[in-house]
Amino acid sequence: MGRYILRNRDRPELKGFVKGATSAASGAIAGAALILGQGSIFDLPTAIIGAVSLAILWRFKIPEPLLLTAAAIAGVFLYAG
Rank of each mutant, 00 (worst) to 15 (best):
D43G: 02
P45W: 00
A30R: 15
L66T: 09
D10K: 13
S40R: 07
Y79D: 01
I73E: 03
A32D: 06
I48H: 04
I56P: 00
P12M: 09
L44A: 11
I35Q: 05
A30M: 11
A71H: 02
N8Y: 09
G75I: 00
E13S: 08
S26L: 10
A32I: 10
F60R: 13
A24H: 06
G75W: 00
I5M: 08
I5G: 03
K15W: 01
A21I: 07
I49R: 01
G2A: 14
G75A: 09
G16P: 00
I62W: 15
F42E: 07
A33D: 12
L57E: 11
W58M: 13
L14Q: 02
T69D: 04
G39P: 02
R3A: 12
L68W: 07
A80D: 05
G20L: 12
T22R: 09
A21R: 15
G16T: 03
N8G: 04
I62Y: 11
P63H: 13
G37R: 07
A71T: 13
L67I: 13
L6Q: 14
G27I: 04
G31P: 01
I41S: 00
A74D: 02
D10W: 04
V52P: 00
P65N: 05
L6K: 11
G39I: 05
Y4R: 10
R59D: 04
A71C: 14
I35W: 05
T69F: 14
M1T: 10
L36F: 14
R9A: 11
A33M: 12
A74I: 11
S40K: 06
L57H: 04
A25C: 11
G81I: 09
L6P: 02
V18C: 04
K15H: 02
L44N: 03
K15T: 02
F42K: 15
E13M: 03
A74K: 01
I5Q: 06
A55Y: 11
P12K: 08
A24V: 13
F77M: 05
L78F: 06
L54N: 07
V52F: 02
G75P: 02
A51H: 01
Y4W: 12
M1K: 12
V18I: 15
P63F: 09
L14F: 01
L68H: 08
A32Q: 12
L66R: 08
I48D: 04
A24C: 05
L44I: 10
T22V: 11
F77T: 04
G16K: 07
V18S: 03
A33E: 15
M1W: 08
F17C: 08
T22D: 08
K61M: 10
G37F: 04
A80C: 08
A24D: 08
Y4F: 15
L67R: 00
